[in-house]
Write a protein that binds this DNA or RNA. Sequence first.
DNA 1: CAGTGGTCTAGACCACATA
DNA 2: ATGTGGTCTAGACCACTGC
Lengths: 245, 245
Amino acid sequence: MTRDLDITLDRSSPVPLYHQVASAFEKAIRDGLLPPETKLENEIALAKRYNLSRPTMRQAMDQLVQNGLVVRRRGVGTQVVGAPVRRNLRLSSLYNDLQDEGATPQTTVLSLELVEAETEIAEQLNLTRGAEVHHMVRLRTVDGRALALMENWVPRGIADFEQAELESDGLYNLLRRAGIDFRMAHQTVGAGAADARQAELLDTEVGAPLVMMDRTALDSRGIAVECGHHVYRADMYSFDITLVN
Amino acid sequence: MTRDLDITLDRSSPVPLYHQVASAFEKAIRDGLLPPETKLENEIALAKRYNLSRPTMRQAMDQLVQNGLVVRRRGVGTQVVGAPVRRNLRLSSLYNDLQDEGATPQTTVLSLELVEAETEIAEQLNLTRGAEVHHMVRLRTVDGRALALMENWVPRGIADFEQAELESDGLYNLLRRAGIDFRMAHQTVGAGAADARQAELLDTEVGAPLVMMDRTALDSRGIAVECGHHVYRADMYSFDITLVN
DNA sequence: CAGTGGTCTAGACCACATA
DNA sequence: ATGTGGTCTAGACCACTGC
């Protein structure tokens, strides 16, 4: 049934106990120590085993459920899911595949300027029209092959931008270093055909299918701090989503 | 600051208290009673106000956070998010728009048969190759306009399929009625170009951009019960995603 | 410093699934 | 009948934020 995981808890660590436990289980599942469909001990026994209260143990299990690693059934128990994230049917997530193989992504800044927000952007960022925003266009390549064309807007005053930093660390790392605490993002994923400019930059044909993604990111105050419009070559990128409940 | 929401709790209801509270707040936020950036009372006061313990009140707030309606900051408080889900930048979620306007979606079953699973499908559903699966192809239209071509597979023995039921109620409702308790789904969203068959059925041109989605759905036992490959006209459909944390 | 959310405890009762 | 997860209580201490 359940092997006895050898979990060592550090009660003086700043890492919450439920997170320490959840991480240990997560690792065990990913490493195959707890194979698919394995039934876990019940929550009370687990709590006792690791000297935790039941609510704390439950919080750990909640995290596993949220991450799609286990499934709970009332009156029955908790099991490791039978079907881990599988590779795609017809869609190729080539970029991820490349990453796994140690390919080197590179980013080139095509444009970086301070502009007045158009109506659409102002709405996205909850600004008055004409407010100043940083606008940047970047091209991402992997092993020299064009992957994505990324256009982003950030309200003035949130951070300073330098081309070199943007190219070496990425937009999100730069913003995080500027003190932004991301909490939420709304994304829309669709498709479209490449226009002349996109086709040239992405080294493909006019009319070629592209994955299109729009995003608005909010910080810990619930305020929009960034929005972006990204297009990816359809043969090199796709989005993976796991829904729970 | 916080208006006093008039929430009536039914302690004898099978609906959990935290869910009753969360639903009331959710409605208040969506109705504009609690405008964006409104600061809520602290958790202890709220618990007291509604005669709940703090953990129960917290569970309610957790649900609001998870749904992207409020943001919490330690030492500061809880606020309604400043940027509710906005309309798209360049992507048009036309299908949703049509739905809002009361358009009538319709489904036609193009094919429905019991076949032996190909390797790819068998892997998706965690079956041995050659196991029998129901295979169906459906065309969805909205107000007579072609929207999506949907191909799905379900292991034999899970449910019985009838064309009429599939067209009137949809696949998921049919499976739910057969006792399937969906818990989790892995989705991959990408793009591609229409081939001849897709172009004809979706009333578009060969090479036209399509949104492509692959999905595997798991039930409460964590076992794969359905997988599908759907393609949508790019000018009529996109996926909305809200990420938290 | 005061106020907030984040974590944790030690129980309790209930609804549901399975035998 | 038994065992499971689902819910709920009434506290406690801590870490962080802002004044």
